[in-house]
């Protein structure tokens, strides 16, 4: 009998795409008002949409409030507030 090769099948080789990136946000009353991009701060002109995702409570709970925001420079951006860790992240949706 030939035993298991013992070499891990590189589970880390399965890399998730579109991982959230941490960002610095200035918020007011729980709503984002500006985003720090590099050295500059971009004010948020408008929050176009917002939605909440609560999932995987049986594993590692996920509780996020997403915002689709329009920046002053005209770019659209999707950010979310991790409502468990109270941290802000950017992620394409």
């Amino acid at each position: 009998m030939v035993a298991h090769s013992g070499t891990p099948a590189r589970p880390a080789g399965l890399r998730s795409l579109n991982q959230p990136r941490p960002i610095a946000i200035v918020e007011r009353n729980g709503r984002p008002v500006s985003i720090a991009i590099g050295q500059r701060t971009q004010p948020i002109v408008q929050v176009q949409d917002t939605w909440i995702i609560v999932d995987e409570w049986w594993r590692t709970p996920i509780d996020r409030q997403y915002f689709q925001v329009l920046l002053e420079n005209g770019h659209l951006m999707t950010i979310f507030l991790d409502r468990i860790a109270q941290t802000w992240w950017a992620q394409e949706y």
């Binding site: 080789g13 795409l17 579109n18 959230p20 995702i53 996920i62 992620q91 394409e92």
Partner: peptide
């Protein structure tokens, strides 16, 4: 619904 779960490398 979780974006990072949709695709992987």
């Amino acid at each position: 619904r979780i974006p990072e779960r949709r695709h992987a490398l």
